[in-house]
Design a binder for these strands. Structure first.
Length: 273
DNA sequence: ATTCCCTCCTGCGCGC
DNA sequence: TGCGCGCAGGAGGGAA
């Protein structure tokens, strides 16, 4: 599932139910997901108050006074608010109870993660998994100038540079394809052969696509739902993703599918040069 | 340094 | 209707 829009939709959905509330219980139904859960998670968060929520790239953050819980939804995860004691289904792995509300992590493929960063270990942004991340695409630091500077002597295809996440975070396969389409850029073009002017167009496209996707509740292909259990509907707005062989919604040409770095790319040969 | 390739895991859609 | 296969939103890590 989740790229930046889905994570942000999740954060916006859970935020009103958990901010300022005390964790009263924690249920772990397995030892971990991608990595083992923090060994002493009970002691770390039960009895503590969620000061605020945040997001860094595709990591969702629950800030406490003494540290932060990092939650990654992997490919198939979701977080929902529901009444405590709601019977657990097959892939419900973690429940964080906050009084009369409960935050439940569901993740069929178990590529997700729950990690702890203690304030005693230094700044959160220096966490091993966060420190190499690029800029936030919806922040003021994300500019055409930054994209241009960060792609000098970078001969990899622009699509793969977007996915790598070290220039800009949160743009996964779907939104990389859609952004490149909107910018009129062929995904195979080497990043260091794209002009500053085209990076201007691309940076605007990325911002617009992500913002629109958030507004529409994200994309639901199979399993993504927001905190309220509702599906997103940005997938109805796709111009190229998963539309191989179909007609381009702009020029009526045929959408092409290629593989780049073991990932599917979709683009229009006419519209994207 | 990059870049490729593999890996974690379940579920679904497709072709036979 | 059933079964096997390939593929899927992410991304760390090891090898080359």
């Amino acid at each position: 599932m989740p790229e930046l829009p889905e994570v942000e939709v999740t954060r916006l959905g859970i935020h009103p139910y958990i901010e300022g509330r005390k964790v009263t219980g924690l249920i772990l139904r397995r030892d971990g997901l991608r990595w083992p859960f923090p060994a002493n998670l009970q002691q770390l968060i039960v009895g503590q108050t969620v000061v605020s929520t945040g997001r860094r790239g595709k990591y969702l953050l629950l800030h406490f006074s003494h540290g932060s819980l990092l939650i990654h939804l992997g490919m198939s995860g979701n977080l929902r608010i529901m009444p405590p004691h709601t019977p657990a289904q097959k892939h419900d792995h973690v429940d964080i109870v906050l009084g009369d509300q409960m935050l439940r992590l569901t993740d069929p493929r178990r590529f997700g993660a729950v990690l702890w960063h203690d304030h005693a270990d230094g700044a959160l942004e220096e966490h091993l998994l966060l420190r190499k991340l690029g800029v936030e695409p919806l922040s003021d630091r994300f500019t055409d100038d930054l994209m241009f500077q960060q792609t000098r002597q970078r001969s990899a295809p622009i699509k793969q540079v977007l996915l790598a996440g070290d220039v800009v975070v949160g743009v996964g396969n779907i939104y990389a394809c859609e952004s490149l389409f909107r910018a009129g850029i062929n995904p195979k073009i080497a990043a260091d052969r794209i002009s500053r002017k085209r990076y201007q167009v691309l940076s605007v496209a990325i911002r617009q696509i992500l913002a629109e996707a958030i507004k529409q509740g994200g994309s639901t292909l199979k399993d993504f739902v927001g905190a309220d259990g509702k599906t997103g509907y940005f997938q109805q707005s796709y111009f190229v993703y998963d539309r191989a062989g179909e007609a381009c919604r702009v020029c009526q040409g045929t959408i092409r599918h290629i593989t780049q770095g073991q990932r599917s790319s979709f683009y229009c040969v006419n519209c994207q040069k």
